[in-house]
Design a protein around this nucleic acid. Structure first.
Length: 295
DNA sequence: TATTCGTGGGC
DNA sequence: TGCCCAAGAAT
């Protein structure tokens, strides 16, 4: 059967209705306070929901407002970040909280343009906060939404590596006019991509728009083109930096350099990564030569 | 535009 | 077992 493309309003209704019936209960959805939404979005950048949940709860209990976080040392944020990965996100969240206190009266701003000025907030996160926390109309284009559109509309398994102009135009053209409907559409398409239209084994039998999916209609052709590059890990600077950070993060106080050195055998790489961590502000060098999280 | 930046779980 | 992937941002 050919994929007949329903009118946009029909597509919106079916996906939003599906969301109403099947959406996961997540803490930042049950109480979409802007600061809670913002914290969740930072943590969810490249990190799965199940790993974020416990850290999110502890974080909000300790720092219920941006001002609370801004009043703590940045290093405490890095430590509370735990093993979520990409600890620069913790530093940027702390810096964003500071900017919110200094420039926005302590309240998370609600417009895309204001949000975009905050450290660690890019196109996706600005749109997500404006939409999920403030109910505003915004083009929320994350990896889930991109995959749904790639399959349903373009008939391909995966979206391109970067966001193309035509892709953004498509997402914009599909965005409902009304703010509340647009926000519901954003959340719904993301959820559909996250739990049904997944990267590896899509559950098309549970999809509310399977009959409208072009990829399905053309027989699920596999990705065609240059191989999708996996990120190398073993022996990389990222692995080294992670090992060094773990030593300091899990220590109660300042750490002797010999103890940090024991975490990575390649001396040249170790020194290079240590320098980069100091340069990034993820580590500080005390006067006595010991290493600490940033004050 | 292409790289870099952590971490861990599923297949 | 390795490989792929997960609500990206900054440069």
């Amino acid at each position: 059967m050919p994929a007949t493309t329903p009118p946009p309003a029909e597509l919106h209704r079916r996906v939003i209705d599906w969301y109403g019936a099947h959406r996961r209960t997540l803490p930042w959805r049950e109480d979409p306070d802007p600061w809670r939404v913002m914290v969740s979005e930072f943590m969810l950048q490249q990190t799965p929901v199940v790993r974020v949940l416990p850290v999110f709860e502890a974080w909000l209990e300790r720092w219920p407002t941006p001002a609370d976080l801004a009043a703590s040392p940045a290093g405490e944020a890095v430590r509370a970040w735990g093993r979520l990965g990409y600890p620069r996100r913790a530093l940027r969240l702390h810096a964003a909280a500071t900017a919110i206190v200094e420039s926005h009266g302590g309240a998370v701003p609600g417009t895309y343009d204001e949000l975009l000025t905050l450290p660690g907030v890019g196109d996706y996160t600005a749109a997500a906060i404006a939409s999920f926390a403030y109910g505003r109309r915004a083009v929320v284009l994350d990896t889930n939404v991109r995959r749904v559109f790639a399959r349903v509309v373009s008939g391909v398994q995966y979206p391109s590596q970067g966001v193309l102009r035509a892709e953004r135009d498509l997402a914009t053209s599909l965005l409902p006019e009304d703010d509340a409907v647009a926000a519901a559409w954003a959340a719904s398409t993301m959820e559909l991509g996250a739990v049904v239209c997944t990267a590896r084994a899509p559950r098309c039998e549970a999809c509310p728009i399977a009959d409208a999916c072009r990829w399905r209609a053309v027989g699920y052709p596999p990705h065609d083109g240059p191989p999708r590059r996996g990120q190398p890990w073993h022996g990389t600077d990222r692995q080294c930096r992670g090992a060094l950070m773990a030593v300091v993060r899990d220590a109660a106080g300042p750490v002797a350099p010999e103890l940090v050195a024991a975490a990575w055998s390649d001396a040249a790489q170790r020194e290079r990564c240590l320098d980069s961590l100091l340069d990034d502000g993820l580590l500080d060098l005390a006067a006595d030569g010991r290493l600490t999280l940033p004050g």
